[in-house]
Structure formats: structure tokens, C-alpha cells
Design a protein around this nucleic acid. Structure first.
Lengths: 223, 223
DNA sequence: GTCTATAAATCGATAGAC
DNA sequence: GTCTATCGATTTATAGAC
């Protein structure tokens, strides 16, 4: 209310941050993005309107156009953030493991991080996953680069496990990866945090994928 | 160009079929549903308009209202068909197996049928899966009954396997089911029929879920 | 930076001719 | 059954006051 109202507002906080204080401009921009992510997640693309987004943060729809050229640019940024935040969390989780961590430990950490970003971290991530296939082609195309990089990260995770002999040699790793990520992405539809915490979910998910659900032979051969 | 132009079109083909010929009325109704399913799948709810749907089959938007009271009723029926066609195919596939078929064989047949319905059968199924969570609450509620019944079918499939000792006793069957269905539902995003046919996909999916991807111990304990 | 006011387009849905 | 014409509501986006 005193210093940082309008005068020497400078630099953004997101990239190559210079100043330390968030400008009011940046704050409002973030609030718009948050509201857009919320609406996108709960109502879906094209069901959301600029007016609805604006109402959530008590501004007028016209004000949004001071920050974003049009609706698609706004949605585009929400989707981008949604995918990047997952990627960042997952990469951080895996890279913070010991260098000699097993493939299973890495996949488990990645699964937990992905699940956490998806369920706890909220609307950006869910908005991306739920809306990607329904969004105009151009927005999809813009989002593809990050998605490919993320897919590659997982691919390397599994291929590392294969090279170390931890994963069966004749298993389809691409299918494994798509099944795992697809399965946990779906969790936004059924997950109930009061039934099972994310830590247990990710542990159990990896148990299913690594060990399988088939019961081991009941009695060993009498050798 | 001669006989079957307009005259004696009669009776519906769908339920409790009486006559053998499809009325023009029913034919147009089906064409509208097809177009709606296509648009719903490729553009998503609320991005589709009655006009777009009408254009796909060369009629005027107003004509749709002769067959459906409003847009939501039309969407509702597309979603219902989408879920029912999967359920029907999967149930048929499982029930056509031998009575002494193993749990794994049943799950494999169910997976193949689900995948086939999803990928071959087309827009109705995908439209349901992709739009369910984004559609207005009332439409969701209408679709829940079929979805619950379908989920129960899978649940029994797995619980049967547990009771027969085929599935590990301490595996979370609910999570297994959700992971499996979620994973293959996601396949509409990545599946390429020229890379791997559905039969191989479903076989490999079941192998991953039943046996796991972990490599077996390389050398047995020297006992 | 945020607002009011409004232009321009599009949507769902209805009325009524044919 | 399908059409044209249109109403009324809502949308994105812009213009300009403050």
C-alpha cells in the first residue's frame, strides 16, 4: 500500500527473475491464470467464458484483455503451465534420489510425484490432461513439445531399467509407459484421498506393474 | 433410384424390433446421432453446435429439433450408446468363453473387446470417455447407472480370480481395475493400428498386469 | 489498470411455410 | 419431415472514459 503500488515495478518473477517483489500486474495475471485453470478443469474448454473467469476473481471480463490477447492465449498458457509443473516435480523427485537407486525406486518416485502434481497441485495439471484432446488443434500443437519431452523422460526411466536387467527383456516398454501414465492420469476421475493416500497408491501401482497381480505358484516343485 | 426411395419405410431397428425395414425417420435420427458423436469426439461438448452437427449430414440445424427436444438430450443419448456398446461387446466376449476359462483368459477377452469397441467402434465410445467428466452434472448423472454396472462387471471378473486363487490375495483389486481400464481408455490418444493390432495389445496388457514387468531372478538360489 | 458500453458473431431454440 | 426466418441470450473482443 506504500511503496510498490505503481512506480518502480520491474521485472517478472517467473523467468530470469531480477527483482524480488511481484508487481501488481503480475499478481493479477497469475490470479487470472488460476481462475482460468479452475474453470478449465471443472467446466472444460469452450464451456468456460471470459466472464465466468473474471467473476471468480471479481474483475470484469474486459480487464482480462489487458493481460492476454485472447481466450486461446490464456488457455494456452494454462495448459503449458499444467504440463511443465508435472514435468518439474517428477524430474526433481527422480533426480533427488541416490545415484544407485533402482529403476523401480525411480518409477515409484516418478509415479508419486506425477500423482501428487495431478491431485494435490490442482487445476493446471488436471486442466491440461482433461482438456488436451478436446482443445483446438493449434493449442494442442503448442503443448506437444513439453509433452514429448516428458514422455521421453519416462521412456528413459524404463529403458534404464531394461539395460540394468531389472525389467524383463521382452516386455513392451512403450506400452508399459503409456499404460502406467494413462492409468494414473485417469485417477482424477476416481481418486479419493480419504480412502488411500498418494504414497500408498503409487507404491501399489508400482507393485502391480512390476510384480503383476498373478498369484505365485502355491507349492514349489518338489525338487 | 427405383424402389426404396420413400414409400414403405417402417418400424425401428434398435429395440424390440418389429418390422424389418428402417423408417426414414429412424435413419435420419441415427445419422444425427452419428454426426453428434463424431463432433463430440473431435471437438468436445459445448464446442459443438447444432449447426455443425447438421452440416455434417447436410440438413439444417432446426431439423434436429424434430428428433430431439434439445441439445442435451442428443448428447445424453450419444453418451448412453457409447457406454452401452462397450458393455455389450465386453459381456458378450466374456460370456462366449468356456465356463472353465481362467480369470486371465476372461480379463484378456474383456480387454480385447473393450479395446476393439473403443478403437474400431468409434465415436460414441470415445465421445463418452473423453467428455464424461466435462459434461454438465445432469448428463453425468444419467450416465452413471450404466457406468456403475460396467464397473461391477469388471470387479466381479477380478474377484472371481481372487477366489480361485489365480490373483494374489493382497493386491488391491479396485486399483488394478481402475488402472487397467484407465490405461486402455487412454489408448485413443496414442493407439496406432499399423504398429500393433488390438489382439497383441490386449495380450501384452494382460501380461504386464498379471506377470509384471520385473525380470525374474536371473539365477535360482543354490538350494 | 480497471471500468462501462457496445459491436459483431454465434448459439440454442421456436414459429410457421411448404 | 425439412425448410427459412428470426428471437433472445450469450460470447469474444474492442473503444474509450476514468
Amino acid at each position: 500500500m506504500t511503496v510498490q503500488t505503481s512506480g518502480n515495478t520491474s521485472a517478472a518473477e517467473s523467468v530470469s527473475g531480477a527483482a524480488k517483489k511481484t508487481r501488481k500486474s503480475e499478481k493479477t495475471r497469475r490470479k487470472i491464470l488460476d481462475a482460468a485453470a479452475y474453470c478449465l478443469n471443472h467446466q472444460g474448454y469452450a464451456l468456460i467464458s471470459m466472464q465466468t473467469i473474471a467473476e471468480h476473481i471479481n474483475i470484469r471480463a474486459a480487464s482480462i484483455y489487458y493481460y492476454f490477447d485472447n481466450k486461446d492465449d490464456l488457455v494456452d498458457e494454462v495448459l503449458r503451465i499444467g504440463m511443465e509443473v508435472v514435468f518439474d516435480k517428477v524430474r526433481d523427485a527422480v533426480e533427488s534420489l541416490d545415484a544407485d537407486a533402482t529403476c523401480r525406486e525411480r518409477v515409484e518416485a516418478a509415479t508419486l510425484a506425477h500423482l501428487t502434481a495431478l491431485l494435490d497441485y490442482g487445476d493446471y495439471t488436471s486442466a491440461n490432461i482433461r482438456n488436451f484432446s478436446l482443445v483446438p488443434m493449434e493449442l494442442r500443437r503448442n503443448n506437444l513439445a513439453v509433452r514429448r519431452a516428458y514422455a521421453n523422460f519416462w521412456r528413459e526411466l524404463f529403458e534404464h531399467g531394461r539395460q540394468s536387467g531389472e525389467i524383463n527383456a521382452d516386455v513392451d516398454l512403450t506400452l508399459t509407459r503409456l499404460l502406467l501414465i494413462g492409468g494414473i492420469n485417469w485417477s482424477t476421475d476416481w481418486y479419493n484421498p480419504r480412502k488411500l493416500p498418494v504414497e500408498q497408491i503409487s507404491k501399489e501401482v508400482c507393485r502391480i506393474f512390476f510384480d503383476g497381480v498373478a498369484a505365485p505358484p502355491t507349492s514349489q516343485d518338489p525338487v
